[in-house]
Design a protein around this nucleic acid. Sequence first.
DNA 1: TCCGATCTATTTTTT
DNA 2: ATAGATCGGA
Length: 754
Amino acid sequence: MSDFLKELNTEQNNAVVHCDGPMMVIAGAGSGKTRVLTFKIAYLLRQGVDPFNILALTFTNKAAREMKERVIRLIGDTEGRNVWMGTFHSIFAKILRIDGHHLGYPSNFTIYDSDDSKRLIRQIINEKKLDPKLYSPSFVAHRISMAKSSLINAEDYANNPEIISADESARKPLIKDIYSSYTARLKRADAMDFDDLLFNTYILFRDFADVLYKYQLKFRHILVDEYQDTNHAQYLIIQKLAANTENICVVGDDAQSIYGFRGANIANILNFKHDYPDFKLFKLEQNYRSTKNIVEAANHVIAINKDQIHKTVWTENDSGNKIGFIKATSDNEEGQLVANAIFEQKMNHQLPNSAFAILYRTNAQSRSIEEALRKRNIPYRIYGGLSFYQRKEIKDLLGYFRLTINHNDEDALQRIINFPARGIGKTSIEKMVVAADEHDVNLWDIITHLEKYKVGVNSGIIKKAGDFSTMIKSFRAELKKKDAYEAAKHIAVSSGLLKLYREEDTPEGISRVENIEELLNAIKEFAEAGAESNEGDMASQGTLEEFMQDVALLTDADNEDEDKDKVALMTIHAAKGLEFPHVFIVGLEENLFPSIQSISTRTDLEEERRLFYVALTRAMEKVTLSHAESRYRWGQFTITEPSRFLEEIDEKLLERPKKVSMPGFSTSPKTSIPKPGPGFKSVNKTISKSVEMNFDASDTSALQSGMQVEHPNFGLGKVMAVEGNGANMKATVYFNGVGKKNLLLRFAKLKIIT
DNA sequence: TCCGATCTATTTTTT
DNA sequence: ATAGATCGGA
């Protein structure tokens, strides 16, 4: 029966068959981590464990999907389907839809994605008449998110002296109030943000012992992938769920922890020891994926980090190729050289496009690469990036679906009440929002009872708002009568959205219509697939509600052309867990990779280095590193320096640079010459990197108005004002003979004179 | 209220 | 560069 175990090495085998009690698998890159997890699930099932008793948690949808497929391949469809396998967020959302009523949430609560939460935060900041420059929605959102990930609610936040003093010294003492309003508004909208899915699950388990007990009984075997990426909330939830049986198996690799920015806590790996002193540790150190050269290069890089659990990754594979190296003069040339290299290797070795991956640090880098690939007629596919579901037209239509399903979804309501235009303008909406706050009722209550709440709008508006709410109510009725596709189509048409975009008659309008049609097709498929697409024991009827529940947690719109023969383009984060024969890591430049925000502290820099490690270890046969000497960033020409990570590659493993830098390339970049007139202000963006080699810039973090400074291009000047914080710190400087300039201190090199 | 012009943040990574 | 937000005039 378990002949499939023969495919495992001893250590993998031991990890698979050990099923009782807590265990941790520390798995080096390419050591067969996913294999162990999937075989373990298969093994459990073969041992007679009920699939309903197994919970497997991953971080990404992709990983969950893949694991599911592999398990099904091993042990068949029927059993595999009933295992709860999914991302933390999707599994917890499922639990909250069933049991969230204990916390006062209906089962049709809306999930706000980060865009939606940011919109809400922005709105609250506006309502509180706070300066959105000081209280930047992104910053506030991040603060709140970090707090929630650490299970600090708004009240705890306000009562935590450390947090408050940190906010105060950042001159943002009112974040606590924004947090508190934000929480209230989410609740009022019957909505949860991503962090709430974890936070509320924790609260549910903490405060409702019987609910916790139910799930403890259900999930008798818990498996967690990428354990190094768990945050505090996830850690505690797992701990609670596993408290009964302690059949918990966590798999991870501290060297691949790359989500610290989102609250991941490597210490969770260390805490495991304390929680389960009798746990069993398995170490997978043999790499099956990569050549010796790649493994060695990666080991050499990661060894530079101080924070790590010791392990020796080794391989029996051949030495293989040396690490390739490409030096380009510009980002466009980098794209061309990479495309050429792919073309060449493809031809020389008869390789499919799918053998290649191009990895970058930021999504924005894909553009120049794409262009080059297109010119070379090399088919490619971009993973991640701005998701299909984040496009405006899709969000609009989803807004109608959301409001139809959950009338209390205020974000959806505000998004669509006047789109397409219905003559309910900004002023009227504002009045309604104010009224909602005054009476502390939901916006839907207001628009359906405008007279009762004495909202000062004219009779025309009352009529229009009435029509709108009647329409939404009629959509709800459609939902009950028709299947998901029919209902969705009806909404797209009756709302006027489809018509609006059709009439636009521009290329964008056409593409928007196409996107809407694509969404409708996806819904059609979903409806037809019915039970098929849903995991676990909750049989799906293929309703629009169910579709929307899935959609909220989808980010990468994989539309099933996975196995087409294409070069893969993605961020390194998105590449985690994947492997490719040939990997190009591009944009190895200081301030890009490592990212400029990560170079100031050791822990941040080490996370970047782990990211580099992850990138290197994606490759099976060959890695090629590339960097460009100049790059357009923020639409501005920038001179770059090679990344420090390049120097961390063992030289004997590196190919000779293919291209020697052009010696004459020291001419100053064309920084736009200030012209008199209104266009003047844009100059602040032009100086990203000083051209003067010997200019000795000062640390400007303490810059204050009144100081005398010197700028390499503009000469001497006087600081008139400083605003913003950290990376967004700006200064207004009056330069002698040049005039007033706004400088982003992150970029501008200034020497402080007095 | 609507429309076009101008301003502005965005670029770290994901659920 | 570029999309979205904001502003100002019709």
